[in-house]
Design a protein around this nucleic acid. Structure first.
Lengths: 172, 172
DNA sequence: ATATAACTGTTGTTCTTTATAACTAATAAT
DNA sequence: ATTATTAGTTATAAAGAACAACAGTTATAT
């Protein structure tokens, strides 16, 4: 999960050696690509986020799912799968996990007896608040006082890259 | 590997439905976090990059490994593992793959008979050039005419996030 | 010199994630 | 009514990443 030693007791000897003792390995070519920087940065973010969520018993994907369910009560599993960009089949275990912990409930919808409406329980809403607070701290730690304007530029750039793969006739 | 339909013959029905037919699922809360935008954007980049490299018989990690070996001939596997941020054990199969395709060679180093010096073959250097050209096209496609200044801001922000997890006494 | 520790590459195993196919039940379409 | 499509589920396989343990080699300590 994490190679950055965010919460590890054992320091990564190889990483220390690479960073401070034998810095002769050049990644200059890869540094010419924005995707390389995105990957390296995202690895750090992901590792820290998972460490942040671990005390709450959440992973990145279960956290995202909980947020979307609280923000969109009555959501169907298909919609959630599409929003999370995971296969419906793989979403089942995620929803199972949230349901087993009584964070959400699967409620049958009368109009369509195939579908489940996903709704947060009071415990789910409570954990949602706690998780949100924790993730806000995580982001503040990651950004570490980055200027608001810079943040906005990054967000716009990321959105543009993401939407570039779609039709692209819709303005944002 | 890819859910964005970058090179798939079958259009993702769920994605279309989510994007154009039932846009009622709100991710406003998650959109408040830069990490969310990074993940979504990186998913798109990764999918397109893998599609780009597939005709060359490369994956993201084998491509990165090849680039680092060409740029740092004589590299040891430990160093490569540290640079790629993968376990030494897991790097073995990656190097195996590159060696089996005669893109690199494992040369024993006289001064330390434990270690292998990784060197690119002529075929490796040739594929390196081809891959680099393909990835340049991929990046141009992803960025799609993004202003140079914006790119630099993003790169600096990503570098800052990444280095924030280290000691942080070194300026860049 | 010898014993001990540390390092390099390797193998094997396990866990997790992701993708795929197939299935049941329910709705929609012809 | 028959057929096709959709929602959720199950099972399985493929791929990645984490971890432990090992042989061979080098470094260190006694």
């Amino acid at each position: 999960m994490s190679r950055s030693g965010a919460g590890k007791p054992t320091p990564n000897i190889a990483a220390v050696a690479q960073g401070e003792e034998s810095p002769q390995v050049s990644d200059a070519t890869l540094c010419g690509f924005i995707g390389y920087h995105m990957k390296r940065a995202f690895n750090v973010v992901q590792a820290d986020l998972n460490q942040t969520l671990k005390p709450l018993g959440l992973r990145m994907v279960t956290y995202s799912a909980l947020v979307l369910i609280v923000d969109n009560p009555g959501l169907r599993q298909s919609q959630l799968a599409a929003a999370l960009d995971v296969e419906r089949a793989n979403l089942v275990v995620i929803v199972d996990e949230l349901e087993r912990r009584d964070l959400i409930s699967r409620d049958r919808v009368p109009s369509d007896r195939r579908a489940y409406a996903l709704n947060p329980t009071p415990a789910g809403r409570h954990l949602y608040e706690r998780a949100l607070e924790a993730v806000r701290g995580h982001e503040a730690r990651m950004l570490n006082g980055m200027e608001e304007e810079t943040k906005q530029v990054v967000i716009r750039a990321m959105s543009r890259i993401r939407r570039g793969s779609e039709g692209g006739s819709r303005g944002g």
